[in-house]
Design a protein around this nucleic acid. Sequence first.
RNA 1: GGCGUGGUGCCCAAGUGGUCUAAGGGAGUGGUUUGCAAAACCAUCAUUCGCCGGUUCGAAUCCGACCCACGCCUCCA
Length: 470
Amino acid sequence: MGLRLFNTLSRQEEQFTPITPGEVKLYTCGPTVYDVAHIGNFRTFVFEDLLRRYLAFRGFEITHVMNITDVDDKTIRDSMAEGTSLGDFTSAYKQAFFEDLKTLNIVPAHHYPAATEYIQPMINMIQKLMDKGFAYQGDEGDVFFNIGQYPEYGRLTRINPDQMRPGERVSSDEYEKEGIRDFALWKAWKPEDGEVQWSSPWGKGRPGWHIECSAMSTTLLGNHFDIHCGGVDNMFPHHENEIAQSECTTGEPFVNYWMHAEFLLVDGRKMSKSLGNFYTLRQLVTDGYRPDAIRWMLMTTHYRQKLNFSVERLDDAIKAIERLRGFQARLEEWKSGTIGEADLGARAIMQFTEAMDQDLNISGGLAAVFELVREGNRLLDNGEMSHQMAGGVLEALNQINSVLGILDMSVENAAGLVDETTIQDLIEARKNARQALDFTRADALRAQLENLGIELIDTPAGTRWKRRNS
RNA sequence: GGCGUGGUGCCCAAGUGGUCUAAGGGAGUGGUUUGCAAAACCAUCAUUCGCCGGUUCGAAUCCGACCCACGCCUCCA
């Protein structure tokens, strides 16, 4: 069968066939660094991470590019309001973004091109579009793409430009456009842009938003590449415009597979500052929620399904994760040096793959994992698992985790950690008390650890401990 | 006005014509195990898939109407 992915272009699942066998060129739309990214942004980035990891699991060689939009209306507006330079302003948020990616255990892209570093390729592209007659300069200096010259416009979103209702808001540049849906490739400098400007054949100014993704993706991945991802809200107009610009510039097909992550909702509604249902990753972590639980929650609802976020659901996530961790710990204790055969593990991997091959059916994939957990625990309980087999099952579990990226995450909160020596000392004291059958003292020590946020699990092999779920 | 998505047990969530009297996780209930506990295991937990009608030998899955919720058409992931 092989991997099948839902392609927005065809609106159906398709067999995934890369342009170059065994290699995948992947482009994912990144953040605009004018603020700290919110949990909805990370829904998309976590989906892209799952895709990236699964492609790797399936043996593909991947080149992954994620752009950083560090010049646009908002970054200019807010940096000016703060009185800082655009560069200083955006680099702070850029850094915060990378920290957040790390918190969520997202595998870094191979390239993070920033828009301001690709001005020249963008200008080259716009020049080509001018030369070919796909673009024109308006009376006020802005350069626009003329969608009337591109009959295929609307192919991705199946929108007929003639039927579109123009937005309520009419910006000043509407007057110089030839077509209402034409979009800006280059924006002429205005006083409110301050010092932000680059010179171009069309006068000083800055690039439009859409052109950056076209220029950066084709520069780093080639004119024609495999997969382009983003949030559903980027389908129109952003991705539609990217296709138009890119294909008109290069004369080649742009992207084979378009994949879009659905929205994250909060209380059934789109997250917005005005509704007060706005979450950022760092705030949640500061409030004591575990990053692995947040990743789990963002990841385990299928990416084309709207996801209703709530902090209550994070508790469910922790339970599920702890079940996996508990199983992993048992296997670690029981395994021997040599890894034996493990049909159980092989079967789980097969079922996991079978599910994930169907457009990343994560629910099906997890069902396979939990079936492995139940069966494995049963064998361990009944003493029917050999040490070698435990090693094999553990190996399979870890392989699956290379896709999930959960079990290798830290579960510790930033706040008030008790150091391990103290914990070990108390556990040792309790062990001695138990051996002396002094259960009163043993229970007192358990309670003491409990107060420190430590839970104990007695096993035949000794006492395991873990920090209490936050 | 145009385009689009979803409604499955108490909660989350797969499944898109027969193997579904519906996977998996959480919660609940009963039991095994345990010094106690936790974890783990076993059993139980939707004759039913928003509502109505139709197609079919057969539908959660296809078609039509309706109800409800949500999104895009504004440089929002």
